[in-house]
Computed example of a mutant assay.
Amino acid sequence: MKIGLFFGSFNPVHIGHLIIANYMANYTDLDQVWLVVSPHNPLKEKGDLINMYDRLEMAKLAVENTQNIRVSDVELKLPQPSYTIDTLAFLHEKYPEHHFSLIMGSDNLVSLKKWKNYELILRDYHIHIYPRPGFENAELINHPSVTITQTPLMELSATFIRKSFKEGKNVQFFVSDPVLKFIESKNLYK
């Protein structure tokens, strides 16, 4: 099975993430997409990062009724900080019957050379790229391991959603109803 790994903080998971995952699972050669909840991206500040288990639960709620999108907690069980190459090696060993590839925005392609063992990622794995405004000419965009998709452009961000929660604004339709209920029940992002 071809599985696309969509890594993220998912702080919170929102409609933009789900649109990208759905597109990748249904409009590319991938059979499934796994949302891989990351405890903390080593290249980002922790900032407003909430508990990783709350983020995991929100991701599960967001995809509970989908056919070919699931959630993985693999990075929560691995040593931290979590590096993509280590997660890929672990998954390859645990699921040798699957072929894993990465899903990332063109903005992440720009910083890929900062990743641990990025050369091995490019050598051994395929990368499905969804476009992000302003990052159309990333250095590795024409690499043979990279495929640019026609995923609908999404300018929705978790930062915007967290800010909206803090300001008491309505975020209905930006996050799924089960995720919104979970956030409200735990009084997150206030």
Rank of each mutant, 00 (worst) to 15 (best):
G8H: 03
H14D: 01
I20V: 15
L30A: 09
I20D: 10
V13S: 01
E45R: 09
E64S: 09
N170K: 05
H98T: 05
V13N: 02
E45V: 13
T147W: 00
K94H: 09
P12A: 09
H126W: 08
Y118G: 02
W115N: 09
D31H: 04
S111I: 14
A158W: 00
H143S: 14
I127N: 01
Y83L: 13
A158S: 15
L153R: 09
G16D: 03
G105P: 10
V71H: 08
P79E: 11
S176F: 00
L43E: 03
H128E: 11
Q80A: 13
V33W: 05
D73N: 15
G168R: 14
D124E: 15
R55Y: 07
N187S: 10
P81E: 01
L78Y: 04
V74Q: 04
R132V: 06
L156I: 15
R55D: 07
P152V: 12
L109C: 06
E119F: 00
E97V: 14
Y83H: 14
R70Q: 08
L56P: 00
P178Y: 01
N51V: 04
L61D: 04
S164E: 11
L140D: 10
V110E: 06
Q67R: 13
I3N: 02
V13P: 01
M52Y: 05
I103D: 00
D177W: 00
S9F: 12
K181N: 12
L156V: 15
H126L: 11
S145G: 11
I127F: 02
H40Q: 15
D124C: 11
P81C: 01
T159M: 09
P12S: 08
Q32S: 12
P133Q: 07
L120D: 13
L102K: 08
E184I: 11
V146C: 08
S157D: 07
H92T: 15
T149K: 01
E93K: 15
A158N: 02
T147F: 02
D54M: 11
S38W: 06
P12C: 06
K60E: 04
E75G: 11
N26M: 05
S145N: 14
Q67T: 10
E64C: 09
V175W: 01
S38R: 09
K166F: 10
F7P: 06
G105T: 14
N11A: 05
K166I: 09
L109E: 02
F10D: 05
W34N: 05
E167H: 08
L35I: 12
E64I: 11
K166Q: 14
F10R: 03
K77I: 05
E75C: 12
H92Y: 04
V33E: 01
V74L: 04
P152C: 10
A25I: 13
A138S: 11
D124Y: 07
K169N: 12
S111D: 15
L56A: 02
Y118H: 07
F182Y: 15
F173G: 00
W115Q: 08
F90V: 01
K116T: 04
R55F: 08
L5I: 10
P42M: 13
F100P: 04
